[in-house]
Design a protein around this nucleic acid. Structure first.
Lengths: 164, 164
DNA sequence: AGAAAGTCTACTTGTTCAGTAAACATTTAC
DNA sequence: GTAAATGTTTACTGAACAAGTAGACTTTCT
């Protein structure tokens, strides 16, 4: 149960350290839902039920996921009758890296390699050598995920539909 | 509990599908032990106890790990008095990618993206778009890990020692 | 007021990770 | 040949986590 403190500009957060990189069902579902919302961006809010039924995602689980995304500022919601969710920003401004980090905690393959997490690095050479390779891995993954936006993803869906 | 069938040349294996990419303690310890053995390559076999005590790794756990590596053909062992483990190949011929795949099962961030595992890809566009991005991630990771050998790692240890 | 939507807290169930224990098999030194 | 040292195998455990469910609560539109 390690925690860590990260500081961004002048604010400090304490976040719970989670498992290293792995694309969970959670993130998978999140991306599907976000893609759904991307295709309807600018056309008002969409209800959870609509998303879960057309994308075939477990409704209650999706509720949790969308809630996390809203708290993180990626979605906005309206309660009550005719409520629902919508993207808080245009799809070009939301990267997959951001989504993964919100739901899976970090992108790094080892705790001590993460940009976001603090972890004391033991001062021995073997560990540091391994760590430096894992840093290379982390950077490679981050480069892909941080360069891909929801809009890019939506474009890929479009071209697949044409091809099919 | 998904299983999968892979075929290599003419033999078929059924292997248990494991979790997607993540550098486990197992792999971490494995790399430390292999690095230890790399530094002694060509000088006979090394006992588990020596490795676990000098690298501070849990002895029994390390036994499991070395056993897996031996079965996979990375290590060779000699039983009995004065027995022990040694690399089955020179350090330049062992990549980190190989080690990770042996111990963590696969490198891919999603099952259906893995080269080694078969997983039915649902024929819907959203899933395929996500999949194609994850393929990019997998390739980026594989490029780093498959290009780094134990010898490279040993070299990094050496330069760190000089610097320190 | 009441129905329809999101919000919150808590729980369950199964799996994996990390590590341990103990019995068993093999080889070598003597 | 036997004992000691070593590797091999199976089984087990506790903690953490993932995935998903349940139910009460709050807000908003009509």
């Amino acid at each position: 149960m390690e925690n860590c403190i990260i500081s961004t500009s002048s604010i400090e957060f304490v976040i719970k350290s989670k498992k290293p990189m792995k694309l969970s069902k959670k993130t998978d579902y999140a991306l599907r839902a976000l893609l759904h919302l991307s295709l309807k961006y600018g056309k008002g809010s969409v209800q959870i039920k609509e998303i879960s039924s057309t994308e075939r995602l477990p409704n209650k689980f999706l509720e949790n996921i969308l809630l996390s995304l809203r708290k993180a500022g990626i979605l906005q919601s309206r309660m009550g009758l005719k409520g629902g969710y919508s993207l808080a920003r245009p799809p070009e401004k939301i990267t997959l890296g951001e989504v993964v980090r919100i739901l899976d905690g970090t992108i790094a393959p080892m705790g001590c390699v993460s940009r976001a997490e603090y972890e004391s690095c033991p001062e021995e050479e073997i560990g540091c050598a391994i760590k430096s390779v894992m840093q290379d891995v982390r950077d490679a993954v981050a480069r892909v995920l941080d360069d891909t936006t929801l809009a890019d993803l939506a474009r890929r869906v479009g071209s697949l539909q044409k091809a099919g």
